[in-house]
Amino acid sequence: MKKRVLRGLLALFLIVNAFFLPVISLSSAAYAPINQNLTVTADRTYPAVSKNNLEIYTYFNKIAASPYDKETNNCKIKSEKFAKYLVSNGATNVYHVQIQYKDNVQFHECVEWQGKIYDPTIPVYAMNENKYFNLIKSYGLDGLKFISPYS
């Protein structure tokens, strides 16, 4: 009798969840799909530049798709390219974010713009700060965080 009840509950659970699977949108934080023409939605827009701008999203993906090289195309260089692009297109409140590795020697760098994180190395596009910092802990990045304005 218990097995039959448990099977019934399990079946009901699976049926209900099949109809109510969560929908993930790019605005709620996702990895930026590379080389796909998707419309990026945002929580809010800003003068001169908006996160909805497909050109910005496309440029971010171009940087993200470029091969990582420790000397010539590392996280610092990729992030600087994206920050420079944002500022040259009128964006304000653009910041460099450096996060220290557990070894307390190395750092990882990404960009913060209007309260969202953009990391062309992982890649992450417009992710909430808390979600991003929780994500990168799995990469050993849980040390000090330095945030400075890009200029």
Rank of each mutant, 00 (worst) to 15 (best):
K51T: 00
I99M: 09
S79N: 12
A64C: 09
S28Y: 12
Q100Y: 00
L144R: 13
Y85N: 09
T58V: 02
V49T: 09
S88V: 01
L21I: 13
I99R: 00
T72R: 06
T41I: 12
L14S: 06
K78P: 00
P67F: 04
L86I: 06
N73M: 14
Q36T: 13
Y118M: 11
I24Y: 14
S27W: 07
Y132M: 05
K70C: 01
A48H: 14
K62S: 10
H96W: 09
S27N: 12
N61W: 00
T72L: 11
M127L: 15
Y31M: 11
A48V: 14
V94G: 04
V97Y: 03
K76V: 15
L6R: 13
I147Q: 14
I117K: 01
A42W: 03
Y46G: 00
S138K: 14
D43N: 13
L141M: 13
I24V: 15
I147C: 07
I34G: 02
F107K: 05
I99C: 04
N104V: 00
A65T: 05
K116P: 02
A91V: 11
C110Y: 05
A11F: 13
A65K: 10
F19T: 10
Y59L: 04
S79D: 10
K116A: 07
K131L: 11
I147F: 03
